[in-house]
Computed example of a mutant assay.
Amino acid sequence: MAERTLRVAAYGVCIQNGQVLLARWISADGAEWGWTMPGGGLEHGEDPLDAMVREMREETGYEVVAERLLGIDSRRRALAGPEGPIDFQSLRIVYAVRIVSGELRHEVGGTTDQAAWFDLDAVASLPRVDLIDAALELHRDAPPTGRIAQT
């Protein structure tokens, strides 16, 4: 039987003047990377909104406020683990955010190494994680259930 793992994380979608704020995720060994929404895993007992604000600050340098909950994206995938297969589920809570202070900077010593603004029409050509497409769909379509159709 495969090991089961659940990761709960919170992310912020920040769009200004036709651009979106992204962070570049990089694997621990540096072999893999891709652009993602700023955010990350909740610490035990942490409120999702507080986690999103903390992660946005850590990864981008900006202080943000949540304007609304966009929805929850749940993905399940099989991963290879050192002891065998892992049945991995990621539960990603996504907020629309607005910057209130701070200056753009890169995270040091974390799971991201860059933060940058990108034109929305350029996002499709970026190397990116699937969260970006899900988060932008939640932002664009505002589904009443807070959930997008899985393909």
Rank of each mutant, 00 (worst) to 15 (best):
V65F: 09
V65K: 14
A66W: 05
E67A: 01
E67F: 01
R68K: 10
R68E: 15
L69K: 05
L70W: 04
L70N: 02
L70C: 03
G71L: 09
G71M: 08
I72K: 07
I72S: 01
I72C: 12
D73P: 01
S74Q: 12
S74P: 03
S74H: 12
S74G: 06
R75H: 09
R75L: 10
R76F: 02
R76M: 07
R77M: 04
R77E: 08
R77W: 02
R77N: 01
A78G: 11
L79M: 15
L79Y: 12
L79V: 15
A80V: 14
A80F: 14
A80H: 12
A80S: 13
A80K: 13
A80M: 13
G81Q: 09
G81W: 11
G81A: 10
G81N: 07
P82S: 14
P82D: 14
P82T: 11
E83R: 09
G84V: 09
G84A: 12
G84M: 10
P85Y: 12
P85N: 13
I86H: 07
I86P: 05
D87E: 13
D87H: 09
F88R: 00
F88L: 13
F88M: 08
Q89E: 12
Q89Y: 00
Q89S: 11
S90K: 03
S90L: 08
S90G: 11
S90W: 00
L91G: 00
L91N: 04
L91C: 08
R92T: 04
R92Y: 05
R92N: 14
R92A: 12
I93V: 14
I93A: 08
V94T: 07
V94H: 03
V94A: 05
V94I: 14
V94N: 02
V94K: 00
Y95A: 02
Y95F: 14
Y95C: 00
A96R: 04
A96M: 02
A96T: 00
A96Q: 10
A96N: 02
A96G: 02
A96Y: 02
V97Y: 05
V97S: 12
V97W: 06
R98P: 06
R98A: 15
R98D: 13
R98Q: 15
I99A: 06
I99T: 07
I99Y: 08
V100R: 14
